[in-house]
Design a protein around this nucleic acid. Structure first.
Lengths: 247, 247
DNA sequence: TGTATCTATTTGTATAGACAAAAGCGGGTC
DNA sequence: GACCCGCTTTTGTCTATACAAATAGATACA
């Protein structure tokens, strides 16, 4: 059983996504949709407001509602936790802690992170393998002031990325993707050639204005890529199905 | 003059984004907000529905509405047209057409694009420079059936990417980011070393179910990166248990 | 003790009606 | 022509009301 405003939303969305109604097309007026769906204007309005809120249409008083032009310069990339990603794809994932040091921030790193010199950090190096083959080298810094419980965690059963997601709330994240050539140490760990092109993801996560963690994840370029789809329906989220209670 | 539902939306959003109301926090019931803002429930409901539609809160009948956890595994990357990007950053951009051939799709490329063998295409190679230094090598395929006017366009004044954006409507795009080592020809054009790590962006654009254009843009790794910020308004919906209650 | 049922609470959906705000349009005036 | 004025259309907002759906918690019962 689908609600009326939901059905209107989906019908119009289909026309837009399929390209039947191209950018600039004037969609029917509210009163026309009221006629078509035999419902009240508020119901139509709710569907159209949702489309407008998602940037799929532009509405102008006295003129009408028009299909918006999608912006090609923004795309949603899926950048998942390595273990989650491997499990989703049905692969076997394992990892090994290579280094686990408690240190204080030196000036160069402090500047890079935008945090004060001398702050206590946990530095972690971790090698991830998928189906037995090295897939990523993780170099992480955790701010101990923000995550005091990391001081006593040894990450033997849950990888650091997943552990942090479960433990620590955060409010902002920044991702950077770079291509770099593998140095000798990295190449050896990833079982690839020195100089091989690697895809590096850098993620810095904040809570409020303070860094929670900073991580570089280095993937061998011949075994990894990032992918992202963009179409108008992915501009936001509409599905909000009620959660089923665990019995 | 700001509407009431808008003000409610913004007030609640501020509490969530600032972290005053952490993930799992139960926000006030509709009837409490009705009291607080002295308006009807429909007005409150509109604000809360908008927050739910953006994935910032989870609503459950009989239980209440709760601040959602942001998903770390999705991020919005700015992937702009090269000329636009350079101009925005205040740099000088120039480009040179290296190749412009009308061909028919061979079987390998056809399979890669998911288009029929033998379809007519325009193949373009183009070198982009920023501030006089090579910054990107663009290898593009344009489906002439979808963009007939490309047959007579020589792209002497507008680069192909920008020209296509202005000329052709599209409904879906897919981006892939890879790290590859430069081969000899690429290295020569980009004025870098053979084997240097390069960041390659592949974009395929569709209208409906048919490809409009396919392009590989190869950047020298030492001069380029992709960056993306996570925005709170782009959170996804997550299933999670309430953690704390409002008093 | 465990289970089925009832009840109260909260959100979800829909309606009819009202007025406000924006803006295209035409008419009148100079 | 340029400008101002008012009419009309369309969207924006808000209200009061109503009933439906989900479900946590209480209660009755086997």
């Amino acid at each position: 059983m689908v609600s009326i405003h939901r059905r209107i939303f989906e019908d119009l969305e289909a026309m837009i996504v399929s390209g039947v109604w191209p950018p600039g097309y004037r969609i029917p007026f509210e009163h026309e949709l009221v006629q078509e769906y035999q419902c009240s204007r508020m119901t139509v309005n709710k569907a159209l407001s949702a489309l407008a809120g998602r940037g799929m249409i532009i509405r102008r008083r006295k003129v009408g509602s028009f299909v918006a032009s999608p912006q090609i310069d923004r795309t949603v990339m899926d950048i998942q936790d390595i273990s989650t990603e491997a499990e989703l794809a049905g692969h076997d994932h394992s990892y090994r802690i290579l280094m686990r040091n408690i240190e204080t921030l030196d000036s160069a790193t402090a500047a890079q992170l935008g945090e004060p010199i001398g702050a206590q950090i946990l530095r972690l190096h971790c090698l991830h393998s998928v189906d037995g083959k090295p897939n990523a080298l993780e170099r992480r810094i955790i701010m101990l002031a923000m995550v005091p419980s990391a001081r006593t965690e040894n990450f033997s059963s849950v990888p650091p990325g997943k552990w942090l997601l479960d433990m620590v709330p955060w409010s902002k994240a920044r991702h950077v993707i770079r291509a770099v050539s593998a140095d000798a140490a990295t190449a050896r760990l990833l079982e690839t050639e020195r100089g091989e092109a690697c895809l590096t993801l850098i993620r810095q996560t904040w809570q409020g204005s303070r860094t929670v963690t900073y991580v570089e994840i280095i993937h061998p370029g011949d075994r990894f890529q990032f992918a992202g789809d963009f179409h108008p329906s992915e501009r936001g989220v509409m599905d909000q199905l009620p959660r089923r209670s665990a019995s």
